[in-house]
Design a protein around this nucleic acid. Structure first.
Length: 477
RNA sequence: GGCGCCGUACCCAAGUGGUAAGGGAGCAGUCUGCAAAACUGCGAUGCGGCGGUUCGAACCCGCCCGGCGCCUCCA
């Protein structure tokens, strides 16, 4: 049974959905004013894997991931570039899909935008005022945290402990320094919508409450996001939602750790971030390979902890994947050995169980990967003895099946080496094949000098040769 | 000041009371004309430090050291 670490309780708990076999999942997406970096990728990937694993476990998952498309930073960016906010948000929503697509992140079931839910947000804000949990001043509406006794239960903070104004001046008009905006009056030139409190736009937190309630209902199963959202964003969402509905909001709160560079959080303000597209552009490998390498890297650490991004870590991820894809290639080849798949099935079954129990343990992807690595070793060993065509097919299928849960191992062909640069050192597959024929003949004549020369020549072009027992060779680049 | 995360071998990384998974690198070996790949063997008497609880602790408790994050927007 799946256990998840719930930030709300600070414990690992068995996961039980409200409705049997159905899961309603909401994840905070991104504010679309710039390209996504690896940190965004990690978050997206964690919840993509959670969704995949829930589906693998037989649940029907309704997965909602929003886009914040009305925000100060978007307005600022639009002004800087002299374009409309919509031009900015459209551009970066498209970029989001493109970048995440390369990482194999599946689109959510619903991807709502804040601007499409104005009525819901206005209604929710109105309800909070009516209930006395929010107040209205000069066209702005604030949530009254003092009126909500449970405030701080997610982030485990007490209002008295919060050092308001530590880094930002407190708005004097607010009743409590921690009161946050539900609705902001708009200045000239800013996007605005009509409301009972005058023309304005919603605060950040209210959109997630409105969209999650709209698409998943007042109480749903899982709410996720990066750890930096625990406070104040998710704390505020709980206050608004529970305050308005009087019901429980999300039951399980899941938060992923940060990607770091040299032990420091990757963030815009520190300027130490790499965008996803930047990494693909700079990568010396093909797009498919780069995507899977990145994906493997991001899943090789438990989602809750920090993850240090480095070239070295990326190279290692590639190396490990090559080990897997090398095996897959060998599994696809016919070989003339004696067949002996006796223990194969039990090895696969054992792996499947180990994989599931790893994933059941708070989505322990590193442990799940370790199970696959164990299987890799076992299958390699068995392949050395000899596997039937069926056995090889079964093994391949097991890797595909379990890999799919992590979004790995789905490539038909793995490009081992570096991206071909236009007009530089290109050699076609058929040219390689003819070189290999020549080399094979040289080997037959025991002309090893010639054979080695050909191998060296191909090596120089980034082609690695592996000689098979039957005298033929396989190659990879 | 408050809240929280993290510290496991050369590197990455699991393990939340029962005696240190897995991978990478390295070294040695098997196979090979030689390679490559694969396989086999070797590698922490110890899990930041010091105390404590326990028959037993990397895992629980206390103190300390070090790194990081949040308390403004941030995945």
């Amino acid at each position: 049974m799946l256990q998840l670490f719930n930030t709300l309780t600070g414990k690992r708990e068995p996961f039980e959905p409200i409705e049997p076999k159905k899961v309603r999942l909401y994840v905070c997406g991104v504010t679309v004013y710039d390209y996504c970096h690896i940190g965004h990728a990690r978050s997206a990937l964690v919840f993509d894997v959670l969704r995949r694993y829930l589906e693998y476990s037989g649940y029907h998952v309704t997965f909602v991931k929003n886009f914040t498309d009305v925000d100060d930073k978007i307005i600022k960016r639009a002004h800087e570039q002299g374009v409309t906010c919509e031009a900015i948000t459209t551009k970066y929503i498209d970029a989001y899909h493109e970048d995440m697509g390369k990482l194999g992140v599946r689109p959510a079931s619903v991807e709502p935008k804040a601007t499409e839910h104005m009525a819901d947000m206005i209604e929710l804000t109105g309800t909070l005022i009516k209930k006395g949990l929010a107040y209205h001043i000069d066209g702005d509406v604030y949530f009254d945290v003092a009126k909500y006794p449970e405030y701080g239960r997610l982030s485990k903070r007490r209002l008295e402990d919060l050092q308001a104004g530590a880094r930002v001046d407190v708005d004097e008009r607010k009743r409590h320094p921690m009161d946050f905006a539900l609705w902001k009056s708009s200045k000239p030139g800013e996007p605005s919508w009509p409301s009972p409190w005058g023309a304005g736009r919603p605060g950040w937190h209210i959109e997630c409450s409105a969209m999650s309630i709209r698409h998943l209902g007042e109480t749903f199963d899982i709410h996720g996001g990066g750890m930096d959202l625990i406070f104040p964003h998710h704390e505020n969402e709980i206050a608004q939602s529970c305050g308005a509905t009087g019901k429980e909001f999300a039951r399980y709160w899941i938060h992923n750790g940060f990607v770091q560079i040299n032990q420091e959080k990757m963030s815009k303000s520190l300027g130490n971030f790499f965008t996803i597209r930047e990494i693909f552009e700079k990568s010396k490998w093909s797009s498919d390979v780069t995507g899977e390498v990145l994906r493997f890297f991001l899943l090789s650490t438990h989602y809750h902890g920090p993850l240090d991004f480095s070239d070295r870590a990326i190279d290692e991820a590639k190396q490990v994947l090559e080990g897997f894809y090398g095996l897959f290639n060998r599994l696809r080849e016919r070989d003339g050995r004696t067949e002996d798949d006796k223990s194969l099935q039990s090895v696969i079954d054992k792996t499947r169980e180990g994989f599931k129990s790893s994933m059941d343990t708070d989505l322990n992807t590193p442990m799940a990967i370790a199970e696959l690595q164990l299987l890799r070793g076992e299958v390699n060993r068995l392949l050395g003895v000899g596997l039937s065509a069926q056995g090889r097919q079964d093994a391949l299928q097991a890797f595909r099946e379990l890999g799919a849960v992590l979004g790995l191992f789905q490539l038909d062909r793995w490009e081992y080496g570096i991206k071909a640069e236009p007009g530089h050192n290109q050699i076609s597959g058929s040219e390689i094949e003819s070189k290999l024929v020549e080399r094979r003949e040289a080997k037959k004549r025991k002309d090893f000098t010639r054979a080695d020369a050909i191998r060296k020549e191909l090596n120089a072009l980034g082609i690695t040769i592996e000689d098979k027992p039957d005298g033929t060779s396989r190659w990879k680049r």
